[in-house]
Each structure stands twice: as C-alpha cells, then as structure tokens.
C-alpha cells in the first residue's frame, strides 16, 4: 500500500478546494465574460478577515467565519460596482477589464500585507488538538473533512440556485446573451453585482477553509485562482459538473505528478495539463 492511499486522499482534498474556486470563478466568468484576476484575492480577504475577527477581536470562531464570508462578498460587490461596472458602462474591452483586475489584485494583496504583514499565518488554534481520521492507511484531518463536505454542499447549492430558481434563470439568461437579457428587461448590472457578491463570498469561504487547513498569506490568491481557472477550462467553461470534474482531475494529476518529483513542480504540472487540454480539447471535457 505505502503512500498510495494518502496520495488519493490528498488529491481528493485538493480537488474539493479547486471545485469551490472553479465554481465561483465560472459563475462570474460566464456572466461577465472577462478574466477576473482579482477573484483569487477574495480567498485571502476571507482568511484574513476571520483571522482579524477571531484572533484580534476575540469573537467566537463561527461568528467570525460568517462575518468573514459576508465581508468578502461585499468587497467583491464593491469592486464590481466601483470599477468593473464603470468599465462596462464605458464599453471597455475584456482586455481592459483584465488589466484593471490585475490592478485590483495587486492593490488588495498589498493592502492585506500592510495590515497584517506578509508572514504566513494559520487560523487553527492548535494543530495537535485537531481530530485525525485514518481511512485505508491514509490520514485526513477534521478540517479536511469539513472541506470535502463544504465542496459537496456548495456544489449542490449552485445546482439548485442556477437551475431551480428564478434568479438562476436570470443569471443563465445573462450568460447566454447579455444584450438580449437587457432588452427583455433584466437589470443585468444589478444581477452581475449579486453574482460578484456570491462568487466572492464562496471564494472567501474557500480561503477560510485553506486558512484552517494549511494557512494564509496575502499572495495565496493568484495560484489558487489559476488552479480554479484551469479546472473550469479543463472541465468545460460554464458547466457546473464540468468544473467539478476538472477540479478533481486537476487534483489527481497534480498530486500523482509529484509522486516521484519535488512538490514545487505542482504549478507547472497544472499548466501543462491546461495547455494539453487547450490544444486537443479546448471546449473541455463536458461541453459539446
């Protein structure tokens, strides 16, 4: 057996985290059609907000998490309202929005570093007291179980939200064609604002989970976002199940890829997977 069960567990946990980022990225990308580089920073904002509420202010951890998620949602909403919406009104191209989001990412990341220093921090109180479960010779922590469970619940939430509610229908209408959606009387900018709130809140929550599992640092967002992007492209942009499939595929490829070599190759392996897919199956696994 050896290391194999642990590798499988690690892949599944990575897959769960990528699922959350891929779903939220996908939601924003499919409605706005621009590559929002600042999306990853929301994970850092969520993580640091919980750090502030629980460790500096001493609030109960559950309240801190709820506040952190809401705060992150509002940051995403605000960024859309004050920057992206203004650009959309000016009919800016997607590339302009991409560069603006690069600016947002750089500035927010640095503000976090000024407020909390750029040192690595962890949200969990004491690693040793965490419950550890053994499954088939592999080890999984309580936090990691929560991550798995959250991924499943949030995915179910997305499916219900997008396919069973009136609001979800509106969102899908905008994804199909924003122009037409506006013509039939949908206030697209308002809906996109909500989408930013939801997407950012989910990513903020992901950042909090990562904070309990490994830890947080101001620059954690970019590589996380790129993993989410790779997962959603590999799975098929705009397809919920595709995003999940892509996320787990990426988790497995990454973790098995570093079986025999150094862990620092992970990012390179992830991008290699992306490039292979973009060349041979650019529409992703699930899309027709």
């Amino acid at each position: 057996m050896g290391i194999l069960p642990q590798l499988i567990l690690n892949s599944i946990i990575a897959g769960a985290i990528y699922t959350l980022v891929a779903l939220s990225f996908n939601l924003i990308y499919s409605t706005t059609k621009f590559f929002n580089l600042a999306h990853g920073v929301m994970a850092a904002i969520g993580g640091y907000a919980v750090f502030y509420f629980s460790k500096t202010l001493g609030l109960d951890i559950h309240i801190a998490i709820v506040l952190g998620v809401i705060l992150t949602g509002f940051v995403g909403f605000g960024v859309d309202k004050f920057i992206y919406l203004q650009l959309r009104k000016r009919k800016a191209s997607n590339m302009v929005l991409l560069v603006a989001s690069l600016g947002v990412m750089t500035a927010l990341q640095a503000i976090i570093a000024i407020l909390f220093s750029s040192r690595f921090k962890t949200l969990s109180g004491n690693i040793d007291t965490q419950k550890i479960f053994t499954i088939l010779g592999g080890v999984i922590t309580q936090t990691q179980l929560v991550i798995l469970l959250s991924a499943v619940l949030i995915m179910a939430g997305f499916v219900i939200f997008l396919y069973k509610t009136q609001f979800g229908k509106t969102v899908r209408a905008i994804s199909d064609d924003e122009e037409v959606a506006r013509i039939i009387g949908i206030n697209t900018n308002k809906i996109i604002g909500y989408i930013f709130f939801i997407g950012s809140a989910v990513t903020g929550f992901t950042g909090i989970l990562i904070g309990f599992d490994v830890g947080i640092e101001p620059t954690m967002g970019l590589s996380l976002l790129l993993k989410g992007v790779i997962a959603s492209i590999v799975g098929g942009v705009g397809n919920i199940y595709g995003g999940v499939l892509g996320a787990f595929l990426l988790g497995f490829v990454e973790n098995f890829g570093i079986w025999k070599i150094s862990g620092e190759w992970k990012d390179a392996i992830a991008f290699a997977l992306l490039i292979v897919f973009l060349i041979f199956r650019p529409r992703g696994i699930m899309n027709k």
Partner: peptide, 21 residues
Amino acid sequence: SDIDAQMRQVVYGIILILLML
C-alpha cells in the same frame, strides 16, 4: 521598509485601475 515595498504595489495597482478607467 516593509510597508514601503507594499505601498509601491498599492500605488501601482491603483495606477493600473485609474488608467483603465
């Protein structure tokens, strides 16, 4: 010096945003 380096990033992020706008 630590904040200085970060401040630079903030300014350069804001410059990009303002330019795009």
